[in-house]
Amino acid sequence: MTEKPAILEASQLGKVYETRGIETCALANIDLCIGEGEFTALAGPSGSGKTTLLNLMGALDAPTQGEVRLDGERLADLGPAALSRLRLHKLGFVFQAYNLIPVFSAAENIEFVMELQGIPGAERRSRALELLEQVELGGLGDKRPLEMSGGQQQRVAVARALASRPRIILADEPTANLDSKTAIRLLDLMLDLNQSQTTTFLFSSHDPLVLERARRRVWLRDGGIDRIEEGATA
């Protein structure tokens, strides 16, 4: 367990999916705590429950057992509107692909989250451009996602995740659709953000490039925690 101040805590977390009366246990009895400034990866083979756990911890889905706390607040106590606000203000997401709104430019994708937060226009614009600089995409603010490469799109997604100044960024297989060179650039960027700005990252991935950079790897197997490894291997 981490000794850093806890951001996300899962206790006795479980998820059972029901399809046409058939129950499938995806996750059971998970106890996990993510501390501030961590760079942690949920690892394991396909079907081990990585994405399910990430979804539950990111308030994208509701558990059927146990609970998740974000900054001590029980997610189960929150209604849909409060969960939307929580995702908007405290969580950032980077998904595998097609992360961006195709009809918005890169800058508009970043600004969108800030506008939902009620940040005034001028401040939004300057912060969006600043974030694009930070992810090494300065000058590409007016490009639409389809005019950018997969790696560039993922970096815009990281910038958008940072835009709301979240407590933690959850990244679900962020390198799955990238070639290794692009993946390394993206991961190094995230690692740099983690080290320079103490941005907390929680990944779900089986990509060795992610796992070797993670300072903690939570290995899942058959819906439960198999083992936890500490320390980067890269």
């Binding site: 849909p80 509107a81 939307s84 203000h89 998904f95 097609y98 989250v113 939902l116």
Partner: peptide, 16 residues
């Protein structure tokens, strides 16, 4: 659908 999922994930409320 996927895009709507992303919008909901980044904090767009259902009313919006």
């Amino acid at each position: 659908i996927r895009e709507i999922g992303i919008l909901l994930a980044v904090g767009l409320s259902r009313s919006r």
